[in-house]
Design a protein around this nucleic acid. Structure first.
Lengths: 198, 198
DNA sequence: TGGTAATTGGGTAATTAGGGAG
DNA sequence: TATGTCCTAATTACCCAATTAC
């Protein structure tokens, strides 16, 4: 189950599903929609359907704990063209906590795909990959509302002071130097884990 | 259908596709048809197929605006790292039909992102880009149910017989040789146009 | 042409949802 | 503000043979 593909989730939520996320009754969710606080769409039969982004926006505006309830298990994407290192990271993460779901993106295309289909909680991002500018990728992730709350941990073998500053300014959590210090990585995973309240 | 000459690739919708548009299960779509609320055609085997116009009419009668592709314009993604060529293609397409929406993906990451966020109708795919294997990309697009009906037109400057065969086997509509023959491109756009019912 | 996985239709039962007044 | 209940309607689950897609 290590590097399996696609966890394609439904692009909408029913009232009951939304209610479960907020730990309230479906009737309450109905009220939120009626009063306009929670945007919703409707089926031809009049039933309400909720888009994940609308739910997230409502959670934020209401100050309720937002992202962890909606995500489920912790998903981690490893963007790394060095297959050996990628698998090493994957093994380490899985052995640290086998509830983490780890996905590998060996190239930019896969990274872009998984970013929007998998919607990971954490991204380990190699800054030096052919045909891909890691800095731009990080900036783009942080610029889009749909992805900006994803944690990005940069990885690089040529960590000049300037580059480290640049990637941190782009919104990365931290910048790991190669070879990877697995103690640091474990700390990062610990933070990722503490986020889970379930 | 405005100007379609051939019933080559009719824009029929399957029950599942209609269900996705209305955020509902395929079973519900079946009920709508059984009760006569949603008109449908049937295959020789008895399976239901839906015309976009019938779906649009049903949506209107239910007071729902379809945000998605049924009524939307034709979206085209150009995957090409040569900025000059990319813009040239964009200009040509826009001048051919200014209702076409053209988006540029200068690298693999943008291509992967746009594939799932934009959900284009047609992809012009450069096979030779750094850090991106065009053949693999095409195969992946055609393998996933969510994207397999997107038309892929390959573009390459080194079109060996073997490579052309390979990309066509991967599911590409055709393989354009560089420099691009714009007459051929126009024909492709014409097919893309006949798909539109709006 | 042939093989295999995914989708579909039919029918009925079970679950969920909306509206409103409490 | 959030929720429980009643009634009716909309939506979905389940089973299995046929059809369709790749």
């Amino acid at each position: 189950m290590a590097n399996s593909q696609k966890p394609e989730s439904l692009p909408y939520l029913t009232p009951t599903q939304v209610a479960e996320k907020f730990k309230v009754s479906p009737i309450t969710v109905r009220q939120w929609s009626s009063s306009g606080k929670l945007k919703c769409q409707t089926t031809p039969g009049g039933h309400r359907r909720y888009l994940p982004e609308d739910v997230a926006e409502f959670a934020k505006s209401a100050g309720i704990s937002l992202d962890d309830l909606s995500t489920g298990p912790c998903r981690i994407m490893i963007v790394e063209d060095d297959s050996q290192l990628a698998h090493l990271l994957q093994e380490f993460i899985s052995s640290y906590d086998d509830t983490f779901e780890v996905y590998l993106a060996p190239d930019g295309f896969r990274a872009g795909e998984l970013l929007h289909t998998l919607k990971p909680d954490l991204i380990l991002l190699d800054l030096m990959m052919p045909g891909m500018n890691g800095f731009e990728v990080c900036e783009r992730i942080k610029r889009s509302p749909a992805t900006r709350n994803i944690k990005v941990v940069a990885m690089t073998g040529f960590s000049s002071e300037h580059n480290v500053t640049r990637i941190l300014n782009a919104g990365a959590e931290t910048c790991l130097k190669k070879p990877i210090d697995f103690a640091l990585l474990r700390d990062i995973l610990a933070q990722c884990n503490s986020k889970k309240t379930a």
